[in-house]
């Protein structure tokens, strides 16, 4: 059996949050620079230039990329050989509290959707757990902005709606969202599963590396077609027109009921902040 100290989890989460809010991954910056070179719309191109300049300033001067430092979303993979003699969720939230407070980040979480009283430390995070083989704890986290989350959408289609139904729903979601979710976007699409699972796999799609491709052929073909058609919508950077509406489309699928064809579209703004760290357990 292996263990990972509570303090290590806290310190790691805190450091990951502070780092994630100030630096964009190079793969994302490369995509933005490629889009800048290709963009034909003058206003759209000027927006992309400022987005690229912003991430330089954020990194060099240690200022959050965006004032919306989000709700913290975590996907935690727990090695089956690990044992915990403490509450892992509590430890993660302790790290969140310290990260947002000591990191001068915005606290954007309210205790109840109707009383709107701020929790003052951005807790609680939204945490999903899964098990893996071995003695490692893999932490994936993303501070997820409210603007792109608000424009995300879910629909329970009928099996007869098929592939065209999925494509139309994704395009409609992005067209209706316009500039509000801060395009250029990364589009996470879930198909199949059930009502809650489809949203979960759509979110998980946003955690995939920006340059990977879906393993399932049907999903991969959908990714290619959707990206091409989304970029023909002329939404463009911040909705001002152009050919850069999405940087990538990620489709995740899951088995579903004979009566169902659930589709979820989870949008990620251009400030696509995320981090991954693996902690290795020591012998307990």
């Amino acid at each position: 059996m292996y263990k990972i100290e509570r303090q290590l989890v806290i310190d790691t989460i805190k450091a990951m949050i502070i780092e994630a809010t100030k630096t964009l991954d190079k793969t994302i910056v490369d995509k933005l620079e490629y889009a800048f070179d290709k963009e034909v719309n003058i206003l759209g191109k000027s927006v992309l230039a400022k987005i690229i300049e912003n991430q330089k300033i954020a990194k060099e001067e240690n200022i959050p990329l965006c004032q919306d430092t989000g709700v913290l979303v975590c996907f935690i993979e727990i090695g089956r050989e690990l044992v915990f003699d403490y509450d892992l969720t509590e430890a993660i939230n302790r790290g969140v509290s310290l990260g947002y407070t000591d990191g001068y980040l915005r606290k954007s979480i309210v205790r109840h959707p109707l009383n709107r009283i701020n929790t003052l430390d951005n807790t609680p995070a939204v945490i999903h757990y899964d098990f893996i083989e071995g003695n490692e704890l893999v932490i994936h986290l993303a501070p997820k902005g409210g603007g792109s989350e608000n424009m995300s959408s879910l629909k329970m289609l009928s099996p007869a709606d098929g592939r065209d139904g999925i494509i139309n729903f994704v395009l409609e979601t992005i067209k209706n969202a316009g500039g509000k979710p801060c395009p250029p976007l990364i589009v996470g699409v879930g198909i199949g599963g059930n009502f809650e699972h489809v949203a979960y796999i759509a979110k998980k799609a946003l955690f995939r590396p920006i340059n990977d491709q879906a393993k399932v052929l049907e999903d991969r073909l959908l990714e290619e077609e959707l990206l091409e058609r989304i970029n023909k919508l002329n939404v463009g950077p911040m909705g001002l027109g152009g050919i850069t509406t999405a940087l990538a489309v990620k489709v995740n699928s899951a088995p579903c009921h004979i009566a169902a064809l659930p589709v979820a579209v989870n949008l990620q703004c251009h400030s696509a902040r995320k981090k991954e760290v693996t902690l290795v357990g020591t012998i307990a």
Partner: peptide, 9 residues
């Protein structure tokens, strides 16, 4: 409109 997501700049 100001450009969203360029809060550092």
């Amino acid at each position: 409109i100001a450009i969203g997501g360029i809060g550092a700049l």
